[in-house]
């Protein structure tokens, strides 16, 4: 198998897997019952899906400048996704939109453990 054929296949696999993850992240956003579970969907499969898509693109472009741009997108996604998820989650908890019936324990609410 030549290198270009290999990179085409690797690119296709990455793009498909990444798209699948992005799709399930979207399904999760619609289906999950409350904001916190939705944020889980918006952080984990979404981030990995984007990384896979970037990887798939990287197999196809060979220009070093473009690869640098892809690397920047990946790094900033990894840096900012947890921060934005934190800010949304924190605001949601404080405005008590949390569904207590879906929580096994809430150690943030318990004054003894606080």
């Amino acid at each position: 198998m030549t290198w270009s054929a290999f990179s085409d296949v690797a690119s296709a696999v990455c793009l498909l897997a990444g798209s699948f993850l992005a799709l399930t992240a979207a399904i999760g956003l619609v289906r999950f019952p409350d904001l916190f579970t939705r944020m889980h969907a918006a952080t984990k499969p979404q981030v990995l899906g984007l990384l896979l898509i970037l990887g798939g693109v990287a197999f196809r472009v060979r220009d070093a400048g473009d690869l640098g741009m892809l690397a920047i997108v990946a790094i900033f996604q990894l840096l900012t996704a947890p921060v934005s998820a934190h800010m949304v989650g924190r605001a949601a908890y404080r405005t008590t939109t949390v569904r207590q019936d879906l929580l096994l324990t809430d150690e943030l609410a318990d004054p003894d453990t606080r």
Binding site: A25, G28, F32, P33, K44, V47, L48, L102, L103, E107
Partner: peptide
């Protein structure tokens, strides 16, 4: 961990008819 976490969330998202239980931990 990132891959396992994604698979876990995907599985929960595609499991119909059941709500996930959650917890807030310290």
């Amino acid at each position: 961990d990132l891959v396992t976490a994604s698979i876990q969330v995907v599985r929960i998202a595609l499991t119909f008819g059941k709500q996930p239980m959650n917890a807030i931990i310290k």
